[in-house]
Structures are given as C-alpha cells and as structure tokens.
Write a protein that binds this DNA or RNA. Structure first.
Lengths: 228, 228
DNA sequence: CAATATGTAATTTGATCATATTGTCGCCGC
DNA sequence: GCGGCGACAATATGATCAAATTACATATTG
C-alpha cells in the first residue's frame, strides 16, 4: 500500500484526509477538471487522488448536498448538467446575493481591502493576457470570494459560495469556447466605486458583472445544446 | 451484532442506510430533538439509531455542510448556537427568498394546491389546540415546504430549506418557552390572498409571517442569553 | 442470411462493516 | 502547576456483500 495522504513534511499539519479530499474535489468542480454530465466514481477518485475510500465517499456526499454533484437514482454520481431554468434561478439568486454582500462589505471597507482586491484584479488581467484559463477562473472566483469574506456574513456567504459550485463546470465550458483571449473582466467599475466609497455604484457594478457572466452562460447553454 | 437496518418487511425497499440515517438525523435537528450547543457524537448516534458507523459519519458530514451541525475544530461536532447576527442574516435571506418563492408558486397554482395548503393549516390549528409542539413544528415546516415545491425552483428551494436546518433547534427552544397554547399561525392571510389570486398580497403575507417568527427568535435569543 | 432483440453471465462499482491507527482529553504522579 | 500516561472517541483502511450496468451469446424475425 502507498503511504496514503501522509503529511509530506509540511503540506498538512493536522488536516484530516477527508477535508483535503474535499478541497481538492471541490477545486476540480470549480475550475473545470470535471465536465458537466461526467460520471464521478468513488473508485476512480481513490486512484486519482490516491486516497482511501471513506474520505472520498464523505467528500462526494458533501458536494452532493451542496449541489456540486448530483446523485442519479441508482447509486451513480455525476456532475450536473444545468438546464436553462437552473441558470435562471442562479441568476436570480446571485443578482440579489452578490450586490447585498457587496453593500455589506462596503460598510467596513479599508484601503488595504481595496488594495487586495486590486491586486487580485491585476493578477486576473495577467491570466487573461497569458490565456491561462484555469488561473482566470481561479482568480475571478477569488475576487468575489474576497468580497464575500469582507461582508462578514457567514451564512449569506455560504449561500453565494454554494452557487459557484453549481455553475463552475458549465462556466469552464463557456470560457473554453470563448477563447482565452477575450475573457471578460468587469471588476474595474466595482473597484472605482469602492475607492469612491459609493456603495450603490459598487453594488450596481457587481450586479452588472454577475448578470453579464450569467447571461453568457445561459446563452451558451441554450445555443450549444448539450456539450459532452 | 444486530441485524442492522435490514428492511423490516416494508419500511425501506431500496433506500440506502445512509439516506435513512440522514433523514432521521435531519428531522432530529428540524424538530428539536437536539438542543443548540448539544454535542453530537458518532458513537452515540450509532446506538441511538442502531445504524452502522459509516452511514452515520456520512449523514453528519452532510448536515455539517448544510449548516445544520458544526464541526468544532478538534473533531468534535455539535449543534450550532446561533448568534443574533446569524439570525439577522437568516431573516434577510428568508425575507427575500420566501416571498420570491411564493410569487413563483402563484404563477401556476391550482385549486387543489390551495386545498392541500388549507388542510395543512387546519392540521396546524389542531396541533396548536392540542399543544403538540412537535406536530406544530412539523406542520409549519410542511406548509412552507409545500409552497417551495409549488414554486418549481429547485435551487432556490434548496437554499430556503437549508435555512430551516440552521434555525430549527433554536426555533424549538423558542416555541417551548412560549408555551404550547399561544403558538402563532400567520398562514390565514396567505391562504386568503392565494384564493384571491393576489400574488402581491400572498408574498406580503408570507413575508410578514417570516419576519414575525424570525423576530421572535432573535428576541428570544438576545433576552434568554444562552439556553442549555 | 443478416440484424435486432433478449436473457444471462461477468465485471465493475457502491454500500456497509469490522478493525487498526491516531489524535484528544482527563488524570495522576512528580 | 506541569508533563507524561492511559482511556476513549474519531479517523481511515481494506475486506466483504450486494447491486447494476455491460458484454456477449443465442434465438427469433424480416
């Protein structure tokens, strides 16, 4: 037997294996290592992640309960294929949640916070220039996650983060289609509004960002029919 | 060893044990068999539910990811103690979600649906008269769940249902304090509005119901300090 | 004669359990 | 009061059992 996920010196001081597996699997969902509709097997993941069966089972179960994976009736698990109706629901939810969390974040925003967001956005620009799709997805996600964190609203942030898990795989497909050169970046308006201390403008900018991205997603879904 | 969760003739034709354990544990959270702050141990549940360890582990993990349980750092799990800030977030979320889902439900509401809701509310009245706290909690939950289902918005319904898991234990404490005689029932206005086909009024009635219940919860929490 | 449908066998995969391992907490002696 | 020691609970593994899908072979029909 392999020496499992044994802490390779510095990697994981005290993080249980199921948590590590969860994080890795979640990232696979978020950043497109799994395509919509793809089957997810326990044994496949035990090999791919060289982890035991129990941690993988728990991670999968956790992601199912978050909507990142779906359990087809007969003990088979797969990455959900979003319908247009699903996307519409996610749009409704995000168009409400994201501006709300942005306003919350604005109530206690420091210059350092804006700096951190600006750095993230600059890194995002770099990823776009280099056509690094995975970095783009990651940094875009980080940008919004950072706002959620600043809002200091753990429950609402949980809801918002959960939505990302649902559209992650489809977003990857969309961006893959658009080509790596003309990926959108609508964060500039948000940063300007934040620097001006204008909560209304910041919320509106975030809402526009969300709507733009999600609308593209829905359009891509309906025109591309099913991707496989 | 006991004969496990073997299908006792008719009970479970093809439901895996982990699903059964999850449902039972979820109901324990929702209807107050667990009190806020209470510790939840795996081995305790394997005995109480006479189930194996693996199904219990998975059910607990699932409920943690939904916010129904929380994992304190050191491999200890407990029922969350809500803070006033937590309640405020839940209020914000429900005041938006529940009216929205009500409006959605109104778009395709049949007379049979209203009948079903009316029956649920009548049963709720009965539970109040008899002072049956558990039935009250269950039927009140069912009433709102039914509206969610009618909205045919699986993702937003998921979000709303998840919130119930968070305040379930605290709600039980609140209702236990209020005494079993004067439990609130604000569903009448909703039913009237639905019969009139007035979506605005129905949404407003639901919002009032949510706000009233949740405000009491917050008040109970802040005055009662911590309950144990 | 060929092609499709059907029923069975085999392999793959999921579910559950018993057990070994590890980390945490409480206690006792120093 | 502090550090090691023992008990307990959680984590993780591999094995075992059961289910389901797949493949294949046979039979039947056009």
């Amino acid at each position: 037997m392999q020496r499992s996920v044994q802490t390779t010196s510095t990697t994981a001081p005290a993080m249980p294996a199921h948590a590590q597996v969860y994080l890795r699997l979640r990232d696979m969902v978020l950043y497109g290592d799994l395509t919509p509709g793809q089957a997810v097997t326990i044994q496949g993941l035990t090999e791919r992640l060289s982890a035991g069966m129990t941690p993988v089972r728990e991670a999968i179960r956790r992601l199912i309960s978050q909507g990142a994976l779906e359990s087809r009736g007969n003990r088979r698990v797969s990455v959900p294929l979003l319908t247009a109706a699903d996307i519409s629901e996610i749009i409704v939810a995000r168009e409400w949640l994201d501006p709300y969390l942005t306003r919350q974040a604005m109530t206690c925003l420091t210059a350092a916070d804006i700096d951190a967001l600006t750095r993230l956005d600059r890194a995002l620009d770099g990823a776009i220039r280099q056509g690094d799709l995975r970095a783009y997805l990651h940094l875009n996600h980080q940008f919004h996650l950072h706002i959620y964190k600043l809002a200091q609203s753990p429950i609402l942030s949980d809801l918002a983060e959960g939505l990302w898990l649902r559209f992650g795989p489809s977003m990857r497909v969309l961006c893959g289609r658009m080509g790596t050169q003309n990926l959108p970046d609508n964060h500039k308006q948000t940063l300007i509004a934040m620097q001006a201390g204008d909560a209304d403008a910041a919320a509106a900018a975030i809402q526009a960002d969300v709507r733009q991205g999600m609308d593209q997603l829905r359009a891509s879904l309906s025109e591309g029919a099913d991707y496989e």
